[in-house]
Simulated assay, not measured.
Amino acid sequence: MKFVILATLAAVALAAPKPDYTKAAARSALDSSEEIGILRQDLVMEDDGRYNLDVETANGIFVSQSGTPEGPDNSVVKSGSFSWTAPDGTPVVVTFVADENGYQPQSDVLPVAPEFPHPIPQFVLEQIEKARQEDAARARGDFSSEEDSYRPPASYRAP
């Protein structure tokens, strides 16, 4: 009897319609978006693989890039820029090169890694010096600090 009830519940669960969240999300995005006009779109493609592309939209997005098949194995080396205004009013301009070294963007709005070598805080320098002094003391066999007061038997020490 339990088997029949479980089989019935499983059949009902499998037969239940499943919501399609993908369509609902896409429908919501379409309902809330507006069409943005393309003011200019210029694409020039040469027979040798070179190209130039310029696009400008009504909401202030601008894209300009060019490419040539001058990379390794005739891969296309690209360079260009794109720009727009962020929601907070900040103008965003990104220039880039894409070649055998990968995609290399540059912009004032991109995060920047700290310069290397970056300044080392004084407390770190002091800790490094302390470790150097302790290593030198160990090498001489001079264990004067409380932490180094334990001296293992000679049979445990490295030659």
Rank of each mutant, 00 (worst) to 15 (best):
I5S: 08
T8L: 15
A11P: 05
A11Q: 07
A11S: 12
L14H: 02
A15L: 11
A16D: 03
A16P: 01
K18H: 06
P19F: 00
D20A: 07
D20V: 06
D20R: 01
Y21Q: 14
K23F: 08
K23A: 12
A25N: 12
A26G: 08
A29D: 09
A29R: 11
L30N: 14
D31N: 15
D31T: 14
D31M: 15
S32L: 15
S33L: 09
S33Q: 11
E35M: 10
E35Q: 13
G37Q: 08
G37Y: 02
L39N: 07
R40M: 12
V44F: 11
V44S: 10
M45W: 06
D47L: 10
D48M: 07
D48A: 02
G49W: 07
R50T: 07
R50A: 07
L53N: 04
V55R: 05
E56D: 07
E56K: 01
E56Q: 06
N59I: 00
G60R: 10
I61D: 05
F62L: 11
V63L: 12
S64H: 09
Q65R: 08
Q65V: 03
S66Y: 03
G67C: 00
G67E: 03
G67D: 01
G67Y: 01
T68N: 04
T68E: 08
P69T: 08
E70P: 06
G71H: 03
G71C: 04
G71I: 01
P72L: 10
D73M: 06
D73W: 00
S75G: 03
S75V: 00
S75Q: 05
G80A: 06
S81F: 10
S81I: 06
F82N: 03
W84K: 01
T85M: 04
T85N: 09
T85V: 14
A86S: 09
P87I: 02
P87L: 08
T90I: 07
T90S: 06
P91D: 11
V92H: 04
V94E: 02
V94N: 02
V94W: 05
T95M: 07
V97A: 11
V97I: 05
A98W: 05
D99A: 06
D99E: 12
E100L: 09
E100G: 11
G102M: 02
Y103I: 02
Y103L: 01
Y103K: 00
Q104R: 04
P105E: 05
D108I: 01
D108L: 00
V109H: 03
L110E: 00
V112G: 00
V112H: 04
A113Q: 12
A113E: 13
P114E: 08
P117H: 09
H118P: 08
P119R: 07
Q122H: 13
F123Y: 15
V124T: 04
L125H: 12
E126I: 00
E129T: 03
E129C: 00
R132M: 14
E134N: 11
A136I: 12
A137V: 01
R138S: 09
A139S: 09
A139G: 01
R140N: 08
D142G: 02
F143A: 06
S144P: 08
S145N: 13
S145M: 09
E146D: 15
D148H: 14
D148P: 05
D148Q: 14
S149A: 15
P152G: 00
P152T: 04
P153R: 12
A154Q: 14
Y156L: 14
Y156S: 13
R157H: 10
A158W: 05
P159C: 03
P159D: 05
